[in-house]
Structure formats: C-alpha cells, structure tokens
Amino acid sequence: MTSPFASAASLLEAKALTREFDDGQVKALRGVDFLMNEGDFVAITGPSGCGKSTLLQLLGALDRPTSGTLLYQGESLPDHPNPAAYRAREVGFIFQAFHLLPTFTASENVQIPMFEIDRSVSERRERAFELLKLVGLENRLDHFPSKLSGGERQRVAIARSLANGPSLLLADEPTGNLDSENAHSVLELLIRLQQEQGRTMVLVTHDPTIAGRAGRILRMKDGQIVSDGKS
C-alpha cells in the first residue's frame, strides 16, 4: 500500500515487509507497504499484538525484517553497514516506560547517546542543558530519575531522543504511563518539537484521541495495515 501523501521527499519506504518469529509460527507483520515523507507525523494504531511495536523496531533498526524491502532515504535499512550509527544519528527513541538509566542524572541521561558522536565533554554538557531547557527541565539537571515525576521523566527521555539531532522520532506509547494531565503536556511537547523542527515522527498509540493529532494514521490489524489516511 503506497501512501497517497507522497508529495515531499521520501524518508522511509516499506514494500511487502514481513517479520516472523518462532520459525514462522508467529507472523507479526504480513506484507506491510507504506511511504513516509520527511516532516510527516504518522500515528500507528491498532489492537495489542497487531504488529505496531514490531514495525517500530524495524524502523529503528532494532530488528531485521524476515522479508520485504525497507528503505531509509533510498538505502536498504536492513543492509545498513552500521545500524548503531543509524540509531545514534538518525533516530530518536521515546519509550512508554521512559527507560532512563537510574544511576545517571537527567543531564547525564541526555548525554548518553552523544558518546557515539564527536563531542567534547563540555559540548555534551551544554547540549544536554539546551535540550532540557527545551523540554522545560532546566532546573532538574542534576536530579536522578527516581526524584522526578513521571511526566518529567518522559520529558528527559524526549530530550535524550533529540540528543544527536535525529531526522526520525520513534515514540512507542509515549503517554501510556502518564496521568491525563502529564499525557497532554507531553503530547503537546512532542507535537511542538515535531512541527517546529520539521522532524518525521512515528507514534504508536492505542489512544484514538492521540492518534487524531497526527497528520496521518496507519491502522493495523493482524500484522497488516488496514487503513492509511488523514486523521
């Protein structure tokens, strides 16, 4: 299935993408096709087990497809010579459970991805400050995750995802662990960052209200995209 909104430059393209587990007994993705352009904000929705997170893992080069084609800027992503470099430079992950490292402060957590690019210690520290300021946590630099609220932790995670200036943000239920107030503010922050900085964002969610904020919704069921359209 090709996106009807392929007007801008193509960033991601999938053709007949499949992912199977347990020697083919479990088919998580069954021939997925899509095209995503630079600057798109795409929500992926669907019931549990429909393949949303598996698709997100393939987009982030955390996993490889069983068959099919997945292109990033026209190059085969599964054949990328250095998937770690792709994850470090091109992708920012935001997880439902935040996944901050508990023994590092907010500032240090944001600096973690920067080890893979050429930045000095002071440059890393300054960049972390800028990003935490961007998400409204400039007064929480030296706080450990255990001393932060859920909403603040997710904001740190968002700052971390932006550490190396990625072109693609992948968010897996980013508000799933937050109360409604924090969920709202985190979502607004993500949307603001996506719009202001023109990044491509793929957001997996169960929540139709959140999906409705995206420019485009891919609905999945049983490992396939069953609808692709504007929200």
Binding site: G60, L62, A84, A85, R87, A88, R89, V91, F93, F95, H99, L101, I112, P113, F115, E116, R160, A163, N164
Partner: peptide, 16 residues
C-alpha cells in the same frame, strides 16, 4: 540486560 539494550537502542555500539 534492559539497561544495556537501552544503550544499544540509543546508538551505542557493541564495542562500546
């Protein structure tokens, strides 16, 4: 394990 996987996910190489 989980922490190491997060490090890999945010771009750390296996060598690091």
């Amino acid at each position: 394990t989980h922490e190491i996987c997060v490090l890999l996910a945010v771009g750390w190489t296996r060598g690091r």
